[in-house]
Design a protein around this nucleic acid. Structure first.
Lengths: 235, 235
DNA sequence: TGTCGAATTCTTGTCGACAAATAATATGCA
DNA sequence: TGCATATTATTTGTCGACAAGAATTCGACA
């Protein structure tokens, strides 16, 4: 009777998948603000939580650090990276440019299968808006635009865009935690217009719609920064 | 007499620096094509080479994988990522756009200390051209443009640009291994013009010069792809 | 009560070992 | 000789342990 050590520790996990399991889950928790910015990350606790040794945990953390989702320094506690409200200009610049670029490139380079994927993501997004599920809307919006970027076939832009979408998710999560905004149907319609421009290979319209859409997101995030309610005190 | 295990294994290394040492050196070797595209990476050999256990080696490899410099699959040998000659368009698109964006942003956002750094990098580049040291020229060119990007103060663009410069380094290394081109003084002069436009905060000129410069690099790499010498055989 | 230094605890970086997965080599058979 | 299978060797993924570095707690003193 030979029970392997690993099977005893985590009987349902395939060898080689440990790092990915941890990475995926931590990534989701960071993006959904379950792990808020600045919160400490403790390897020992994670090892207990995931029922595995610290080694794959550490490797997952190296991956997350490489994507800017966590900050690490030697011999020091790792923590979830902060959202930098002091320097939003660079983020907005990059976000808007990448929305323009990826939407335009999708109009140029898309293939039939891409459109199937884009439509599927849009359907998920519309469902999230319909049910007024902000968390799902944020995630499906990012997935929709990520699918558009994939259709544009430029891995360099796509990796940057992916990072920006991730960070945007965290800002939007914070936004919808702060405001009880209804999720407007208008966003669904804007996505539809983008799809139509892409299908029509209308490069100019695609870029323009990409920009307009990005501008909306920028405005939402700016609202979060500026605040929307003034303190009214009679003096 | 208590000799710690670690001290006996690598007496000159500070705890916490292991991953970085391996990462830095492997990265340099990949970029200089000392480790050519496609070559296998063996953790055990690296552990022997660096006189440390495989754990920090693996962490360095995770970092390199995150930057696209190596390719890993579960339970399989890791290898240096290939240079993709079949899909150069996306690379060129991204490179040119990022040269434009970073040079323009430097004209907008640079600070006095930035100019000191940029000038220092330019001086190193000029020296490399003077001594016709292709390897140094490739590295100092990338450092020069990286310094310009830093002056533009957009970490999102800069991370993408950094990756593109890295990949460009590998292509250029291959180029200068294939051709005995002299390193032209013209490049030094173009850098000077870019510096002048940045100092003058001439956004339009900066962007134009950035584009022209990038186009040159694209041409060099295209020359590598097309080949420059036809096989002459009398039939 | 506040400060400082010492002691203790906790967390991180690395170690070497074990075992699973893969690659390479050997063997048998047509 | 070529192919399939078995065996062996090698490499990767993970384990738990050790120790260094950092954080926290405790005790002494002004």
């Amino acid at each position: 009777m030979k029970t392997t050590k690993q099977s005893a520790a985590a009987p349902e996990r395939k060898r080689g998948s440990g790092v990915k399991v941890v990475y995926d889950l931590l990534r989701d928790e960071i993006l959904d603000l379950v792990l808020p910015p600045g919160s400490p990350i403790d390897e020992v606790q994670l090892a207990e939580r995931f029922k595995m040794s610290r080694t794959p945990i550490r490797e997952a953390l190296v991956r997350l650090a490489g994507e800017g989702l966590i900050d690490t320094l030697p011999n020091r506690s790792t923590m979830v990276s902060n959202l930098d409200f002091l320097n939003m200009s660079p983020f907005f610049d990059a976000l808007v440019l990448m929305y323009r670029v990826t939407t335009q490139l999708a109009a140029q380079h898309h293939r039939p299968q891409d459109l199937v994927t884009i439509r599927a993501r849009q359907k998920e997004f519309a469902a999230a808006v319909q049910t007024q599920d902000a968390l799902a809307m944020i995630a499906t919006n990012a997935a929709f635009h990520s699918a558009i970027a994939e259709a544009g076939r430029n891995p360099y832009f796509n990796s940057l865009f992916s990072r920006l979408l991730d960070e945007g998710r965290r800002f939007l999560r914070l936004y919808y935690q702060s405001y009880e905004d209804r999720l407007p149907q208008r966003f669904v319609e804007e996505h539809e217009a983008m799809i139509a421009a892409i299908i029509a290979r209308d490069v100019v319209a695609a870029e323009r719609l990409g920009k307009a859409h990005a501008d909306q997101i920028v405005q939402q995030i700016q609202k979060l920064m500026v605040g929307d309610e003034r303190l009214e005190i009679a003096l």
